[in-house]
C-alpha cells in the first residue's frame, strides 16, 4: 500500500466560453510494478494506480487505464473544452481499491 499519496492538479482559474484549456495532473505514488525484487530477493507485489478519471460538472471528460509501464509519480496532462463555469473532479484508483480525489473550479466568462 502506497503511503503519502498526494494528488496535485493545475487548472486555469478563468477561461473564455468554448476555450480549450490544458490541465496538468501529478500524483505522488511509487507505482510498484510487481517485477522489482526487495532486499530479501522476493518480488515486491504490484501496487499501482490503474485508473484515472476526469469529470466536469459530473460529466466525463477523460479517463485512462494505466499499466505498470506508467512511471512512478504519474504525471498526465490533458485538455478540456469549457462552455460554462464549474468544477473539475479528478479521481485516481489504485490496485488496493484506495481512491484519491481532487477538485478544481474554473470560471467561464
Amino acid at each position: 500500500m502506497a503511503s503519502n499519496v498526494k494528488p496535485r492538479v493545475r487548472v486555469p482559474g478563468k477561461a473564455a466560453k468554448g476555450e480549450i484549456v490544458e490541465i496538468k495532473t501529478l500524483i505522488s505514488h511509487n507505482m510498484e510494478s510487481g517485477r522489482r525484487k526487495g532486499k530479501d530477493g522476493k518480488l515486491i507485489p504490484r501496487s499501482i494506480i490503474n485508473k484515472f478519471e476526469v469529470t466536469f460538472n459530473g460529466k466525463s471528460v477523460f479517463s485512462s487505464d494505466w499499466q505498470p509501464a506508467i512511471s512512478a509519480n504519474p504525471y498526465m496532462s490533458i485538455f478540456a473544452k469549457v462552455d460554462e463555469s464549474g468544477e473539475f473532479a479528478f479521481k485516481w484508483t489504485d490496485d488496493g481499491g484506495s481512491i484519491y480525489e481532487k477538485t478544481s473550479k474554473i470560471t467561464v466568462s
Partner: peptide, 21 residues
C-alpha cells in the same frame, strides 16, 4: 500495454502526455 486513454467530445482535442517506463 502501457496505457489506454479514453477521450470524449468534451476533451476539446485528443491530446495527452505522460511519462512511461
Amino acid at each position: 500495454a502501457v496505457a489506454s486513454l479514453y477521450f470524449t467530445p468534451m476533451s476539446g482535442k485528443a491530446e495527452a502526455s505522460t511519462r512511461m517506463r
